[in-house]
């Protein structure tokens, strides 16, 4: 009898396992679908609104305007507190208004207008985090679906997002430690989706200046021409590796790129686990005394850099400090 029962129990147990696994997979898939919607909506929707950014006991208020034009996306972020600061993004170029001057800070070619959350990236995400839907809440007057991405180890942060149920726009996002402490968060306090949005600043961006020529009433915030940085970025195989990259982080690109304020090109290797990324920068040490070794952080991003074997190595990522240091300690030149 017991001989007969044993396989029965096993079968039943197996059946139960399958059922729970399926239920879990269903919820997980729904969360990943939400994420796809978020990435798509973020690029395709016209919106303007005010959001607060909170990190390290600071709170800052900013206005963001995003416009999806026929040729490309335009995005402007104005910081409303303290000294005037502004960032404009368009067609892979980033300009920043700091110290009364608009300067180009970054430039990338081949960054399309469509989200780069690729299917393999999403499946990777599913194996590193446990996504869970946590009901609906109201944010900035809109109904939002709450989704939590709980990491499967303590080398990553927990990500919690609030997605507008109608438009798919991200209304709020929080990054938390394994002890549930908020590291940083964004939240819209006011948001207008679609409708009449001021487009006058689009005319001041580079592409339209080319068409109309420089206007006599040009203001100091006119964007300078994009440098031809994008053309100087190239794929490379530097021969540098990081042996202790946390599981689930896969190399997504390796570039040799010019960088603002650097004479020699810098190697950048990017790894991603689907939700966060870690970049390793390698450059020859120029003996700059300011390059003191150390860990810095800005919100959820941690940065560690140090001179090692005549190279300045910098590790940056939206991961806890211990992860950044662990990765740094394992960087070595393997040879090409």
């Amino acid at each position: 009898m017991s001989l007969l029962l044993a396989p029965c129990g096993k079968l039943l147990g197996g059946l139960l396992l399958t059922v729970t696994a399926n239920a879990y997979a269903g919820d997980s898939q729904a969360c990943l679908d939400w994420l796809k919607t978020v990435a798509f909506a973020g690029h395709q929707t016209d919106y303007t609104g005010v959001f607060v950014y909170q990190y390290d006991n600071r709170v800052e208020t900013s206005r963001i305007t995003h416009l999806a034009e026929a040729d490309s996306e335009y995005e402007k972020i104005e910081i409303l507190d303290g000294p005037r600061r502004e960032i404009v993004r368009h067609h892979g170029h980033v300009w920043s208004y700091i110290n009364h001057r608009m300067v180009q800070v970054d430039s990338h070619k081949g960054r399309g207008r469509f989200p780069s959350l690729l299917p393999d990236q999403l499946s990777r995400l599913g194996s590193n985090y446990q996504p869970k839907q946590e009901g609906t809440e109201r944010v900035a007057g809109y109904d939002a679906q709450v989704i939590v991405f709980q990491p499967k180890d303590n080398l990553r942060y927990t990500h919690k997002i609030w997605v507008h149920t109608d438009s798919g726009l991200l209304l709020k996002a929080a990054v938390m430690t394994d002890k549930n402490q908020v590291v940083e968060q964004y939240a819209f306090t006011q948001l207008q989706i679609g409708g009449k949005i001021d487009r006058s600043w689009l005319n001041r961006t580079v592409s339209s200046r080319h068409e109309h020529g420089p206007s006599p009433g040009m203001r100091d915030s006119d964007l300078p021409e994009p440098e031809k940085n994008a053309d100087r970025i190239q794929q490379t195989d530097s021969g540098w590796v990081a042996d202790s990259m946390p599981p689930g982080f896969k190399k997504t690109m390796e570039l040799l790129r010019p960088m603002h304020g650097k004479h020699a090109p810098v190697t950048q290797i990017v790894y991603s686990d689907g939700l966060s990324a870690i970049s390793i920068f390698i450059e020859p040490d120029d003996g700059d005394e300011d390059d003191v070794a150390g860990l810095t952080s800005r919100g959820a991003v941690n940065l560690y850099h140090k001179v090692m074997d005549k190279h300045l190595i910098t590790v940056v990522g939206e991961v806890p400090p211990r992860t950044v240091v662990q990765v740094f300690d394992s960087v070595r030149f393997k040879g090409r």
Partner: peptide
Amino acid sequence: SNDYLMAHQEFSPSTDMNGGA
């Protein structure tokens, strides 16, 4: 470090989700 943060940001999946924020 801002320059590194900036260079990192453009390739991070978090930019796809949060956009310019």
